[in-house]
Design a binder for these strands. Sequence first.
DNA 1: ACCTGAACACCGTTCAAGT
DNA 2: ACCTGAACACCGTTCAAGT
Lengths: 186, 186
Amino acid sequence: MTTPRPMRADARRNYERIVATAREVFVEQGPEAPLDDIARRAEVGAGTLYRHFPAREDLVAAVYSAAIQHNSNLAYQLLDEHDPWDALVLWMREQVHFGVQKRGLAATLKAAMDKDSATFAQCKSTLNEAAAAVLKAAQDAGVVRDDVKPRDLLLLGHGVAVATEATPEDSERLLTITLDGLKPQR
Amino acid sequence: MTTPRPMRADARRNYERIVATAREVFVEQGPEAPLDDIARRAEVGAGTLYRHFPAREDLVAAVYSAAIQHNSNLAYQLLDEHDPWDALVLWMREQVHFGVQKRGLAATLKAAMDKDSATFAQCKSTLNEAAAAVLKAAQDAGVVRDDVKPRDLLLLGHGVAVATEATPEDSERLLTITLDGLKPQR
DNA sequence: ACCTGAACACCGTTCAAGT
DNA sequence: ACCTGAACACCGTTCAAGT
């Protein structure tokens, strides 16, 4: 569905160049970097960038969707290798680290997800399923309260990431507090 | 210190007009509203706006500092009227509501606070003291764990607000989870 | 079918001229 | 001392012309 239909060779080449360049520029300047810079450094016209990525979110999605897929897959791997609570902790920590890694990344991704662009639909459902899997295991084991929803894990992770992106040294402490809040309360 | 030194009558008039207009425009368009719009509607030149408010944050501060002061004072009032845990819950809820009320407000205020502009220094310390008071009462009563810091309350409240500003119906549930995380763990 | 890059619109910021 | 508003820079977005 999001699988791109065949492109002409030059179009595909440009598409790849733009994504590769955007990946670099986002690292250097954050996800608010001028699209013009990206087009220039990718040596394409501004119009070409817009043709492939009508909205900034589409470009952000193209750059980060692989990482999000990876984050999602990690959930199942962690569930294999650890008990449900540890899997939850490790997965949430990964979510927070990912959100914190580049200033503004978390906010940009969240905005993109909330808008549910077609490009992100895939990522979004994969990520939701991963959260659901991690959560279900923990709930079945009785280590997380039953009224928590998969979406809550993502929102809480996002919240911690955004709140601490200026001071990453606070991430872990806030995450611990948040995770404790997920435990069944007396 | 942040108390403004005397201004010429026309300067003061313009200052007030700008703040009043900004308040309206922020409500209508959010805190990213074009400064130009604000200047035009306030019927001042763009340069006048910049003279009074060199950075957008300064204008944001002027508009919202009274509300932040109010939020801070509320802490002491709540401590008078409720037991420490309830005061904490009610105060945190107020923080979240305030952050959620206008899209982008929480992020803008946080950015301003992190940058610690002179204009915000006052607000920031007042708010920190309020958080410390609420927290200390709760810790003394043994209903909140000892390793929590005042700053954590603000960060957690901010996180919940940002995470749920697109879906305010999630605010309360996330806040409950977060507050439970603050309780002393077994 | 796709690309280019000039053109346009918009907005933040500065500054020379005015009071 | 303060204000004005034109001017400049920057960036997102579109579109006519080209291949």
